[in-house]
């Protein structure tokens, strides 16, 4: 399968990429690792007329300790998130979730910013960063703005990013010793999650993100509210599907997804509470 024809331009900096996006308008798409976009283009589900390749903008690949949070460059590859000692110490849930993305070949190429900007509710990292209360930084022609993960996802494969904006950094609060767990339920290795759960807990504080439980990644607010008010794990996990509007597909019915969300949330919170 070969993508439809397109023009290809290479940006050497974030500013140049934004200028190129401005020049080419809605028809342009950013290309980072290409592991979400190229498959869509091969299936002709996406047919951008211009690709702006930012894969060589090396200064957007980093993991830095920024005091109360960890700053991750948008072009940091999954493999580098997975193996980052800084993340292992301060945000182990994210490093672990990154190790579940695709397979080693995919993780050598795909980037965290690309995965988040693609806004696929079945991907592991949108729900994980949502659970962790991350903030995304977008750069556009008029400067940068911060977008809470909770405000970023608008619909299936749709985010609040403007056509001339580039995701540059992901800021993830340090977990400060919170317990955590990532539960991914699928039928075959390397598949997307049929349902996944990313959860952390520190006393009565918690965050629970649901993978593939609707058109956007879902924050299970009812679960965290129950934990905050002293509910035990079983009672809190029973509320896991309350904030979600899952779809049926080849892999699972709506009811099965809701069941999985409750069971996996229970397992995740039990592990995070241990």
């Amino acid at each position: 399968m070969i993508p439809a024809a397109f023009d290809y331009v290479r940006a050497s900096s974030a500013e140049e990429a934004i200028a190129l996006l401005g020049q080419h308008g809605d028809e342009a798409k950013l290309l980072a690792g290409g592991h979400s976009l190229v498959p869509l283009m091969k299936l002709r589900l996406a047919q951008p007329s211009v690709l702006v390749d930012i894969g060589r903008v090396n200064d957007l690949s980093y993991v830095r300790d920024a005091g109360d949070h960890i700053a991750i460059g948008a072009l940091t590859r999954h493999m580098d998130v997975e193996n980052s000692p800084v993340l292992a110490e301060h945000v182990p849930l994210l490093a672990h979730a990154a190790s579940h993305v695709g397979d080693p070949q995919v993780r050598h190429r795909g980037t965290i910013g690309g995965s988040l900007a693609h806004a696929d509710p079945a991907s592991d990292l949108p729900a994980t960063t949502l659970a962790l209360g991350a903030t995304y930084v977008a750069q556009g022609p008029n400067g940068t703005r911060e977008i809470a993960a909770a405000d970023f996802y608008q619909g299936y494969l749709t985010s609040t990013l403007e056509a001339d904006e580039l995701l540059t950094e992901i800021r993830v609060p340090k977990m400060n010793g919170a317990g955590w767990s990532f539960q991914k339920f699928n039928r075959r290795a390397q598949d997307w999650a049929i349902v996944g759960v990313a959860a952390w807990r520190r006393g009565t504080e918690s965050g629970v993100g649901l993978v593939n439980m609707g058109s956007v990644p879902v924050l299970a607010g009812a679960v965290s509210a129950a934990i905050a008010s002293g509910a035990d794990v079983a009672d809190a996990a029973a509320l896991a599907a309350d904030d979600a509007d899952p779809q049926a597909d080849l892999n699972a019915s709506v009811e099965y997804r809701q069941h999985l969300a409750r069971v996996l949330t229970g397992r995740a919170l039990s592990a995070a509470s241990a």
Binding site: M1, L31, G34, K42, D103, P104, V106, H108
Partner: peptide, 27 residues
Amino acid sequence: CDTSSCGACSIHLDGEAAKSCTILAVQ
């Protein structure tokens, strides 16, 4: 598979395994 699932097209790109069906030659 031609969809980056099966790995038959795996090569090393700058020393690391990658799926060459999901990489543009220009990259």
